[in-house]
């Protein structure tokens, strides 16, 4: 297993745990009556955790695991570059994870304090994650072949 795949998979596992922590928090909020409702924008912040939970799970865990395993196991690109461009693969890892962390911070922050500049964190996250997807497709497309 190449080092970058180990990074993808280990980071994915961290996101899986983080997603379930957020999911537990969302579920516990209604049962334990956590004091979010006393904050002015508390309910909005809790509502914002829904997309955070789902994207930590589907992007941080599932998609990241797919990226890592595909980089490792898909047919080789060439003898000289068996896994295509390592630079693109590293860019995929960096962009995806920075983008996701910005979203995790930005989504509840923007809900708590809208129109105070937190929104640009979400906009930046959107661009970084889109670039990550593009880098992955560019680097993987040439490896989808018979041998």
């Amino acid at each position: 297993m190449p080092p970058l795949t180990r990074w993808f998979v280990k980071t994915g596992l961290v996101y899986l745990v983080a997603a379930l922590m957020v999911g537990t928090l969302i579920a516990a909020q209604s049962v334990l009556e956590l004091p979010f409702d006393k904050l002015k924008a508390g309910p909005a912040a809790v509502a914002a955790l829904g997309p955070v939970y789902f994207h930590l799970l589907m992007l941080g865990w599932v998609t990241q695991l797919i990226f890592g395993v595909a980089y490792w196991l898909f047919p080789t690109y060439s003898k000289e570059k068996p896994r295509g461009s390592e630079r693109l693969a590293r860019a995929t890892y960096g962009l995806l994870n920075v983008g996701l962390v910005l979203r995790v911070i930005g989504e509840p922050a923007n809900a708590l304090q809208p129109q105070t500049g937190w929104g640009w964190l979400l906009a930046s996250s959107a661009i970084l994650q889109w670039l990550a997807g593009l880098c992955f497709v560019l680097n993987t497309w040439g490896r989808i072949k018979g041998k």
Binding site: E107, N110, I127, Q129, W130
Partner: peptide
């Protein structure tokens, strides 16, 4: 990713 990116961007900066 493109559709999701547009939605997320709009969520932050309408």
């Amino acid at each position: 990713f493109s559709f999701g990116g547009l939605i997320l961007f709009h969520k932050g900066v309408p």
